[in-house]
C-alpha cells in the first residue's frame, strides 16, 4: 500500500505544479505586423495626349477611395476627345491607401509578362483601331505601343478618333493579371481582373 500512498502524494504535487505552470504562462500580446498590400488599386487616371500637340491632354479618373471596403467605385470624369485626332493613351495607377501613394503602374511594368490591357468601345468610335475593341475577341485590332518581349502589354496605346461626332458612347479599359496564362492568343477573360473601368466617351 506504500507505493499507492507515495503515488497519491506525488500526484497531488504534480497536479498543483502542472496547474501553476500552465496558468502562470505569460500572456503575449503581439500586434500583427503591418502588411504591404500588393493588390489594392484606388486611383486610375487615363491620360490621352495628342501626338501632334503635347499640350492637348485629356484625362479621365476613376477612384475607389476605400479599396477593399464597401464604398462604390466612382468614375469621376467622362472622356472628351476631339474629332479626327490621334492620341497616345497612358496611365497613372496608384494605391493611395498608403502614404505616400504606391505607384502600381511601376509594378505592372516590372511584371509586364503577366499583364495586358484590353479595351471595348462604341463601334467605330475610332478610325484606327476600327471595330469595338478586343475585350470580346482578343484578336480584334488595338494599337499597342509596347510589348513584354513577345506579347503586347498596353501601358501605351495609340488611338485615332473617328471623323464623326459621338455623344454618350462607351470606353472600357480592363487590366488583366495573367501569370502563366498570358500568350499571344490569351484574352480579356483569362486570368484575373485588376481593374475594369467603364467610362463615358464623347468625341466632338
Amino acid at each position: 500500500m506504500k507505493t499507492v500512498d507515495y503515488f497519491k502524494k506525488y500526484s497531488i504535487y504534480a497536479l498543483l505544479l502542472v496547474g501553476v505552470l500552465f496558468i502562470g504562462c505569460t500572456k503575449d500580446d503581439d500586434d500583427p505586423a503591418p502588411e504591404n498590400e500588393l493588390e489594392v488599386i484606388t486611383d486610375v487616371k487615363l491620360i490621352f495626349t495628342n501626338t501632334n500637340d503635347a499640350n492637348d491632354v485629356v484625362t479621365a479618373r476613376a477612384q475607389d477611395p476605400d479599396g477593399p471596403g464597401v464604398q462604390e467605385l466612382a468614375i469621376l470624369d467622362t472622356i472628351n476627345l476631339g474629332v479626327g485626332k490621334t492620341y497616345t493613351l497612358t496611365y497613372e495607377i496608384f494605391n493611395n491607401l498608403e502614404t505616400p501613394g504606391e505607384n502600381i503602374g511601376d509594378e505592372i511594368k516590372d511584371e509586364d509578362d503577366e499583364h495586358q490591357f484590353f479595351f471595348s468601345f462604341s463601334n467605330n468610335a475610332f478610325a484606327n483601331p476600327t471595330g469595338n475593341g478586343n475585350i470580346d475577341t482578343a484578336s480584334d485590332p488595338i494599337n499597342y505601343n509596347d510589348n513584354d518581349g513577345t506579347n503586347p502589354v498596353g501601358l501605351s496605346t495609340t488611338w485615332t478618333t473617328s471623323t464623326t461626332q459621338l455623344t454618350n458612347g462607351t470606353f472600357t479599359v480592363r487590366l488583366q493579371h495573367q501569370p502563366g496564362v498570358k500568350t499571344a492568343t490569351s484574352g480579356a477573360t483569362d486570368g484575373d481582373t485588376d481593374f475594369n473601368l467603364p467610362f463615358v466617351l464623347n468625341i466632338r
Binding site: 488599386i41 484606388t42 475607389d64 464597401v70 464604398q71 462604390e72 467605385l73 485588376d194 481593374f195 475594369n196
Partner: peptide, 10 residues
C-alpha cells in the same frame, strides 16, 4: 449577402 459593390476590379 448585402450587395454587389462596384470596385476597381468590377
Amino acid at each position: 449577402p448585402l450587395a454587389v459593390i462596384g470596385t476597381i476590379r468590377g
